[in-house]
Simulated assay, not measured.
Amino acid sequence: MPISLPPLTRRGFLKRGSAAAFGALATSSPAVEIPEQVWVLFSDTHIAADEALNARGVCMAENLRRCANQVLKIGQKPFGLIVNGDCAYLEGISEDYVTFLRCMQPLREQSIQIHCTLGNHDHRTNFLNAVIGPPPPNAERPMNVPDKHVTTVTSAQVNWILLDSLDLVNKTPGLLGQAQLTWIERELRNSPNKPTFIVAHHNPMQASMDEKKKGGCLQDSDALFDLLASYSKVQGFIYGHTHTWLKTKHEKTGLPLINLPPIAYTFDPKRPNGWVIARIDADRAEFELRALNPAHEEHGQKHVIHFT
């Protein structure tokens, strides 16, 4: 079962929605196909139960509300929005997700499809219970991979394979696990033959990292990137976790890497926080930073991936 938030009407919000609606995916194409699709990418929102809570000099809930309002003013409805992990502040308590959903409500009321991955500060059960309520007694939630929440979202232009790198709550390292790697291979084999982006919260391990940094990233990333390298339709890997807006390449495979900025706080006060517009057509994907501080020198910066 993917973590995907269905579009929301005010009436539907009062009813909280059903489990079936919660699993809805943005898989249908627009009535009139357009050459370019707009997607929105959020990451590291770190929402606490207390909407007024500040950390590292910012109010996380205020930042998320600002970003949501900015998305509503971009001039066209995005085909979908991905929140790439660490939705919650530290330990993913249930009340964190209640506040997270409240901040995301204006987007859902405009029928924007929202998909969430999980990061190391999230808690699977608490998130699901906050969104759809606990499962019936003696029932298990359906999942594509045991104890992981993954899905593939596909449109006329692109596939997004959304992974679950959460290993232990409030512990820095991430892990996919063999069962998820097997699922990824199956999805890559069976998904439509179109440009494909892999999305996970944790940054990949690189040979040039020092040992401390290696200990905090995706621990089985070598196995993942060996797999990705065998599929030419994979055009990039998108991650968060480091709270740094950046484009690089994977050192071993050369696959483009896009590091999303945080909506919450940055670790380096000189770096921008904010969100990203992804514009995708038949030949390329353009990722544009929308910094919360529009005076920041990187606001509007574009990272482009040309499809091969």
Rank of each mutant, 00 (worst) to 15 (best):
R290F: 11
F267C: 11
Q235D: 01
L246N: 15
F287N: 01
V234S: 04
I280E: 01
P262A: 07
S208Y: 10
D281E: 10
D268C: 13
E288A: 07
A264V: 02
Q219L: 10
F237Q: 01
A285C: 12
N293M: 09
N273G: 13
K247G: 06
D210Y: 11
P272V: 00
H243E: 09
L255Q: 05
M205V: 15
P262C: 05
P294T: 14
K214I: 03
V276F: 05
L260C: 11
D268K: 12
N203E: 13
A278K: 05
V234D: 00
G274P: 05
Q219P: 01
I280V: 15
G274R: 04
D281Q: 09
L228I: 03
P269C: 11
T266E: 10
N203G: 12
K270I: 12
G300L: 09
E298W: 06
E286C: 07
S232I: 07
N259D: 07
G274T: 02
A264N: 06
P272A: 06
V304H: 08
S232D: 13
L255A: 02
L257Q: 01
F237H: 09
D226Q: 14
H299L: 10
E286G: 03
H296S: 02
H299E: 13
D268M: 09
V304Y: 07
Q219A: 08
P256W: 00
Y239E: 01
E211T: 13
A207Q: 15
I277H: 03
W245S: 09
F237K: 07
L289C: 07
A291L: 04
Q301M: 15
N293P: 05
E298G: 04
W245C: 06
L228A: 02
E286P: 05
Q235V: 00
G274Q: 02
N273I: 04
V304N: 08
A285Q: 03
M209G: 04
D283E: 14
A229C: 11
R290V: 15
Q206A: 12
K270F: 10
H303P: 02
R284W: 02
P294N: 10
D283W: 08
K252F: 13
L260S: 07
N273Q: 11
S221H: 04
K302N: 12
H241I: 00
K270S: 15
Y239G: 01
A229G: 12
R284E: 11
E251V: 09
Q235M: 07
E297I: 13
I263S: 05
S221I: 00
A264Y: 00
P261F: 05
S221P: 03
T253S: 05
A291V: 04
K249D: 09
S232H: 14
T248H: 02
S208I: 08
I277W: 01
G300A: 12
P272N: 06
Y265D: 13
G236L: 00
K213D: 13
A291H: 02
S230W: 09
A264H: 02
S221C: 02
S208M: 10
K233P: 09
